[in-house]
Write a protein that binds this DNA or RNA. Structure first.
Length: 628
RNA sequence: GGACCCGUGGUGUAGCGGCCCAACAUGCCAGCCUGUCACGCUGGAGAUCGCCGGUUCGAAUCCGGUCGGGUCCGCCA
């Protein structure tokens, strides 16, 4: 710490504001910082001086230092000043226990104004004051002065430092890959950068360094990582920005267990170093297959901080119930699933309606509910369809007839196997949030793996890839790919290749997907087959991924890796649900930077340099804001 | 592409057809104050209620559109 203190010394300051302690009493120091608060008592003025290390009280007495006193009488909040003075223990009874520096104060003798400040548009000295986010974004440099955002960026910096240290300690090589690359569709839309030297051609910004890192494996780098900026031109959400940062890593000569074991140790290490105060729920991380996660939690990113698991009611119900809402889906291979919510037996009708509406939005036909009161009374709109025996069977299937205070509520969704689980999985998360089941301090990590390679899309009536084409199938399913011939998109729902599982794994934290990766295909023939199954022609695949395919003919090691969303991880460690809260300069939901006012129209000459012109939407009085 | 919520002095809110050329808190400005720490006290300034149009005798308030922000669905690993 004293080494750091020395490093922070400059001609403007001998110490930083947050560092002074009782042991510094008697020293003469020079400080520089922002005026956080001022308390003017006439001929005695107190200033709280702030820098990013903390706050210290400066007191100036007109009788002792008239010039300094005059300067501080003029000074205002957020002015930047430097102060020289002696560190003194505060008078008995005037210590401030809320400040780490609260035992001392600096008796200012010289004050120099380094920079004046306008009155800020919002409170910088009140960390909890709510402020409209657009105002914060417009003056982001002021928001960043405030304690919450400052602390989150400091946390993120520590995380990145820890990430680098762990990787270097394990033999990883940090390599930077280009930002201007070739458009290689990975699912999301590319951001495109027109080329001036080759008019009509474009670069694309990377959605991730996926191909580059695999090429680095072919190059023999063995273990690579990068804190990589990625770009995806899709609609924004609280957990999605058009540009974001991934911890991208790739390893050669490993299997899935090898990657997961390193990543898990790295994640634990970084988490414990940066948030030692937050308990990790379970070590080692629990591992679920995709199927298991879906069946038990209705999600491929389960929040494990609470139970509320999905229950398949099939076994508890007679083969036909006479209730078509249950019978019809079951006849076509669907499921009847439930979650049992303790204590919600007295839920209001309007809240049920609200849940039903949400379930419909997520793709269910509706919800069936049954409530069991403490006194054993059963209430449900479908009571008339179910015998007393059937109802009892349902309750025992979901955990018996012992009910929590307030009664229990059974929420039932019937439908197609995956859809019914996903709908209920969403309700599980929402209900848990609403009744406060999730402990906000706990960090519940897990792995989900063995994802299906392809998913049958019933609407479009075709198979669709669930991830990128580079992921290898699990060894026992390799034949499903090689024996299958041709375009999976034209194959039927029952095609065996559709059942292939991938060596794909996601890290999940508190219900958020932190990252995902896979063991890659490192065989040209198999990779071409994988593309073919996804409907790419051979020419198409070679045009888009030619370099990788070629590279695999020159000796490619078995390899695999993962990419972890740095902002999501940081947000979760910071206790935030929005990644904008861990980004210095985020964009709005419509992709604007309110501070820089980007995007903006370029100078017309920039279009012509690129050989481009723009067709504006017609009827466009709207778009023409600043015409000449 | 779609659904919903929000927009009132610098900031956060109240007001939801006339009582409002708009209220409260805080901030800001001025004066006073030698032990405060969200200092205190006294006084003052500051808003065409996002914008455009409509309904009405009358609109911050109701309606339509539009712009901006947010949440979500679709989209996106």
């Amino acid at each position: 710490m004293s080494e750091l203190s020395n490093a922070l010394q400059t001609r403007y300051r001998s110490d930083v504001c947050g560092s002074l302690r009782a042991s510094d009493a008697g020293r003469v120091v020079r400080l520089a910082g922002w005026i956080h608060r001022r308390r003017d008592h006439g001929s005695l003025v107190f200033i709280d001086l702030r820098d990013r290390y903390g706050i210290v009280q400066v007191v100036v007495d007109a009788a002792v230092a008239p010039e300094a006193h005059a300067a501080l009488t003029d000074a205002r909040i957020e002015w930047v000043i430097s102060v020289e003075g002696g560190v003194a223990l505060r008078r008995a009874g005037t210590e401030n226990e809320k400040l780490p520096t609260g035992a001392v104060e600096v008796a200012g003798t010289k004050v120099e104004v380094l920079s004046r400040a306008k009155t800020p548009p919002f409170y910088i000295n009140e960390p909890d004051a709510p402020i409209d986010e657009s105002v914060r974004l417009k003056h982001r440099y002021l928001d960043l002065r405030r304690e919450p955002l400052r602390d989150r960026l400091l946390l993120r910096s520590q995380m990145v430092q820890a990430i680098r240290e762990v990787h270097h300690a394990h033999g990883f090589v940090e390599v930077e890959t280009p930002i201007l690359i070739k458009s290689t569709p990975e699912g999301a839309r590319d951001f495109i950068v027109p080329s001036r030297l080759q008019p009509g051609s474009v670069y694309a910004l990377p959605q991730s360094p996926q191909q580059m890192k695999q090429l680095l494996m072919v190059a023999g780098f063995d273990r690579y990582f990068q804190i990589a900026r990625c770009f995806r031109d899709e609609d924004l959400r609280g957990d999605r920005q058009p540009e974001f940062t991934q911890l991208d890593l790739e390893m050669s000569f490993v299997d899935e267990g090898g990657v997961r074991s390193f990543v898990e140790q790295m994640v634990i290490n970084v988490t414990k170093r940066t948030r030692p105060d937050r308990p990790i729920q379970q070590l080692p991380f629990p591992v679920f297959t995709y199927d298991e996660a879906l069946e038990r939690y209705g999600s491929d990113k389960p929040d494990l901080r609470y139970g509320l698991e999905l229950i398949d009611l099939g076994a508890a119900l007679p083969a036909t119930t006479g209730f078509k809402v249950f019978d019809a889906p079951r006849a076509s291979g669907g499921r009847v699933r439930a979650i049992r919510v303790p204590g919600l037996g007295g839920i209001a009708r309007s809240q049920i309606d609200d849940l039903t509406e949400r379930a419909k939005r997520y793709g269910a036909d509706g919800i069936v509910w049954i409530s069991l009161q403490e006194d054993g009374e059963v209430r449900s709109p479908i009571a008339k369809f179910l015998s007393a025996e059937a109802t009892t069977a349902l309750w025992s299937a979901t955990g018996g007839t012992t009910v929590a205070a307030g009664g229990d509520l059974l929420l039932i969704v019937a439908g197609e196997r995956v859809r019914s689980a996903e709908v209920l999985g969403r309700l599980r998360v929402e209900v848990a949030g609403e009744i406060g089941l999730a402990d906000p301090d706990i960090l519940a990590f897990c792995w989900v793996h063995r994802f299906p390679m392809y998913q049958w899309e019933s609407e479009s009536g075709r198979w669709d890839a669930t991830h990128n084409p580079f992921s290898a199938p699990v060894p026992e399913h390799r034949d499903l790919l090689t024996t299958s011939s041709g375009d999976l998109a034209r194959r039927s729902a029952g095609d065996p290749a559709g059942g292939a599982l991938a060596q794909q794994y996601d890290v999940v934290l508190n219900g958020w997907e932190l990252g995902g990766g896979s063991i890659r295909i490192h065989d040209r023939e198999l990779l071409e087959r994988s593309f073919a199954l996804m409907g790419h022609s051979l020419d198409d695949a070679r045009a888009k991924f030619g370099a990788l395919l070629d590279a695999f003919e020159y000796g490619a090691p078995p390899h695999g890796g993962i990419a972890i969303g740095v902002e999501r991880w940081a947000a979760l460690l910071a206790g935030q649900t929005n990644i904008r809260e861990v980004m210095a300069f985020p964009k709005t939901q419509s992709g604007s930077d309110l501070m820089l006012e980007a995007p903006s129209e370029p100078d017309p000459s920039q279009w012509s340099d690129l050989g481009l012109s723009v067709r504006r939407p017609t009827g466009g009085v709207t778009g023409a804001k600043k015409d000449a």
